[in-house]
């Protein structure tokens, strides 16, 4: 009897202990995640806080996270210091045009690669995929020389032409198109639909997630592009937001609060797009990543 009691006591203590261990594990996980999330966001939080201070208070320690007297005027000053509005507009223009062109040309080509048969198709596709693996930096010099021959250096058209025909876009959409069953297309063909009809009325509507993914990737990449504009754009009135931000940093290096305000403003479109469509970001990365 006594033995039985000790046994049962032992077993309950074991379950209690494992329950405790389990709870502790959960708790530790949450603690770790919260600390990590804090560190991930810290630079951005600090950015917001610093952008609302006077320059002399930015580095005051201990940090005053919520400024007692927020300097909202920082956000109006940046627009007058440098032609920030022009830069913003240029980036917006380039982002919209390049993204639209890329969506059009990529989805067209991807349809041919995925669903049509023509001689040389597989070789051509191999060339596309191979070009993705080659660093852009390897051929940026000849590209520049080519653009100079066309007399397009220092124009938005140069950047548009360079980015509108993306091999990556073709690859991404092709992978998605392949997964759409041929039966649907064949049925439409039997009903007398042309390939263009099939593309516009069946393929595109079925591919909304993939198109959304490409839209996000491209627009974020163009908005954030730094090296392209750095090489191609010299005139003040053509520069993009990233170049403008860097110019601001170089010219007003000690105006810490203004720099932070400008940096934050440059992030707003990306933050908005990201929060709105983050599902497609995640799905896009997961699908291109795992399938390779």
């Amino acid at each position: 009897m006594e033995r039985l009691l000790t046994l049962s006591f032992l077993s309950t203590s074991i379950t209690l202990r494992s329950l405790f261990k389990f709870k502790m594990g959960k708790l530790l996980t949450y603690a770790a995640l919260i600390i990590l999330a804090f560190f991930m966001l810290l630079p951005f939080l600090w950015m917001v806080s610093a952008s609302l201070k006077l320059d002399k208070d930015v580095f005051r320690f201990p940090i005053e996270w919520i400024p007692s007297k927020p300097e909202w005027s920082n956000y109006t000053t940046i627009w007058t210091r440098i032609p920030f509005m022009t830069f913003f507009g240029n980036s917006l223009k380039l982002t919209v045009i390049i993204t639209l062109l890329q969506l059009c040309t990529s989805s067209f080509a991807a349809y041919a690669f995925a669903k049509l048969k023509f001689p040389g198709r597989d070789w051509l596709f191999l060339a596309y995929v191979g070009s993705i693996a080659i660093p852009w930096q390897v051929y940026m010099v000849p590209q520049f020389i080519l653009m100079r021959q066309f007399d397009l250096v220092d124009s938005h058209l140069s950047l548009i032409l360079l980015q509108a025909f993306s091999a990556f876009g073709v690859f991404l959409l092709r992978q998605f198109f392949v997964s759409i069953p041929d039966d649907i297309l064949d049925a439409a063909r039997i009903d007398g639909m042309s390939e263009y009809g099939i593309f516009f009325r069946i393929m595109l509507p079925l591919s909304k997630p993939a198109l959304a993914t490409l839209t996000i990737f491209t627009s974020v990449a163009v908005w954030n592009d730094f090296m392209g504009p750095l090489i191609y754009l010299n005139s003040q009135n053509l520069k993009t937001i990233q170049l403008g931000l860097r110019m601001f940093i170089q010219q007003y290096g000690a105006d810490y609060a203004l720099i932070m305000a400008a940096a934050l403003v440059s992030l707003i479109p990306v933050i908005a797009l990201f929060l709105l469509l983050q599902r497609f970001f995640v799905e896009g990365i997961a699908s291109t990543g795992v399938k390779g």
């Binding site: 991930m40 966001l41 630079p43 951005f44 600090w46 950015m47 974020v220 908005w223 954030n224 730094f226 990233q242 931000l245 860097r246 940093i249 720099i259 932070m260 940096a263 934050l264 440059s266 992030l267 990306v270 933050i271 990201f274 983050q278 970001f281 995640v282």
Partner: peptide
Amino acid sequence: FFPYVASLVAVAVV
């Protein structure tokens, strides 16, 4: 994931 989409110029300066 967010730092990945934030522009490098902004990230670098902060």
